[in-house]
Design a protein around this nucleic acid. Sequence first.
DNA 1: CTAAATTAGTTTCATATGTAACTAATTGAT
DNA 2: ATCAATTAGTTACATATGAAACTAATTTAG
Lengths: 155, 155
Amino acid sequence: MPDTPSRPPLRLREFLPYRLSVLSNTISRRIAEIYDREFGLTIWQWRAMAVTGDTPGISATEIGQRTAMDKVAVSRAVAGLIELGYLERKASEDDGRRSKLYLTRTGQSVYEEIVPMAMSEEKLLTDVLSASERAELERLMEKLAGAASPERPLW
Amino acid sequence: MPDTPSRPPLRLREFLPYRLSVLSNTISRRIAEIYDREFGLTIWQWRAMAVTGDTPGISATEIGQRTAMDKVAVSRAVAGLIELGYLERKASEDDGRRSKLYLTRTGQSVYEEIVPMAMSEEKLLTDVLSASERAELERLMEKLAGAASPERPLW
DNA sequence: CTAAATTAGTTTCATATGTAACTAATTGAT
DNA sequence: ATCAATTAGTTACATATGAAACTAATTTAG
């Protein structure tokens, strides 16, 4: 007579926040591994590079806004990319605190040749879903995101 | 003021792995905050506790299998829980390397208290979805999990 | 039986990450 | 014009995390 549960048991495997976390971490780890193995980039570096290639002259703060990285993460990613010779920094004429970031020639070739390959690798993961399934998933995630937003009271 | 050019931007915000990660982190942080504030537990500690409460006498290795935590994380979580007086360790009769883990009386009461909280928090989240939407979400997550599983070759 | 191989779990070390403190430049209020 | 407040970005510090080395117990091969 070990137990007479007075409430439904918590099954971690069926617990949505847990499952979301495991799924997201699995995917993130997988993708990070690809960037590292193929290009020697962290996922943060790749994101910073991708938006800089897309918007030359972008500032670190703007990179943060576009990628949801905090400013410390951006600072470190950019420093690493400059170290690798993929990015260069130019002083902004109108604001001495800002720098404008550009791909170097090398960085440009990475952006044009290697980064699209990375995006197609990422696509392989999500291609198991049809377009309509992806749309549906996005819709459901949208709803959950609303429910989880910090403005919402806790209990 | 300088503005961004009107070329097609990198649509990071629409990219599924990225959005999944943001959603999962939002939810996890929200829940982790509750565990920490209410009970002084990390999310890893809570997970170890949840499966121990569900399966008394479980071993550390089994906790890892049930929660997708690696053995180092389990070891640290369990050590912390013993320190807090929530778990106790008993030697396994048949295998001297193993320990069997149990909730203490205190741990049991925390478990009793925390489980309904966790479940009601989950309910707040999932209640924004209808039953069929929840089922569909499960199905889509299943598919993605399969696509992201490490056994799957990338090409 | 005995030595090699395996397994459970811990510790160590190196790296990653977040928060806060900090520097330098700009803006704003008076 | 001056000084407080704000902003861009970096550095420092404390903690989290993962890989690998390690200890101890068990299993397996011969």
